[in-house]
């Protein structure tokens, strides 16, 4: 469970301006890593925005997650350039290596696999990003080694 750091939504929210719902949700995600049921209730109680509206907005945007994420977020670019350069093979290699499908987190909470529309480094296609590090011009067989680096950094061999 998340450690319940206090967030004051009254300062974020409805300072006369209705547009602050999305920044509030972004703040929650930045703090907790995902948007929990409790946080949605909290925003609702403090701001008075109907729950349905908060939930509606949160589910509309691809950025918001409703489940805790792994320590390392692996983002596979599926932009046009990456697609024609073999992003599918990279995704399959990652799925096999991590044992999870797109959008899922490994049971040990080490990795979350995400495919994204475009990371904007098209000339390096195919590209993946792990946390803030970018790896470009990839071949599927390089995946194992890259992932291993992060596993080792996490300490010890991770059981799949």
């Amino acid at each position: 469970m998340i450690s319940h750091r206090k967030l004051d939504f009254r300062t974020l929210h409805f300072g006369g301006e209705e547009g602050k719902l999305i920044p509030a949700l972004q703040k929650v995600q930045e703090t907790d890593g995902y948007i929990s049921r409790e946080r949605i209730l909290e925003i609702h109680r403090q701001s008075g925005v109907p729950l349905s509206q908060i939930y509606g907005v949160a589910t509309f945007y691809a950025q918001f997650r409703f489940h805790p994420v792994g320590k390392n977020i692996v983002r596979v670019c599926h932009g046009t350039a990456c697609h024609v350069s073999g992003a599918k093979g990279i995704t399959e290699a990652l799925e096999e290596e991590l044992g999870v499908a797109n959008g899922e987190t490994t049971p040990d909470r080490q990795f979350t696999l995400d495919t994204v529309s475009c990371l904007g480094c098209c000339s390096l296609a195919p590209v993946i990003m792990i946390n803030n590090d970018t790896y470009g011009n990839l071949l599927p067989k390089q995946i194992k080694k890259i992932v291993k680096g992060y596993r080792e950094a996490a300490g010890g061999v991770v059981q799949p």
Binding site: G19, I22, P23, L25, Q26, Y61, A62, Q63
Partner: peptide
């Protein structure tokens, strides 16, 4: 304003909706 990942928000009226804090 940071977008929250919705391609349709490149459409101007959708973008306005998003700035207003809506879907």
């Amino acid at each position: 304003k940071e977008g929250a990942g919705a391609f349709v928000c490149g459409e101007e009226t959708a973008l306005i909706g998003s700035i207003e804090g809506k879907r």
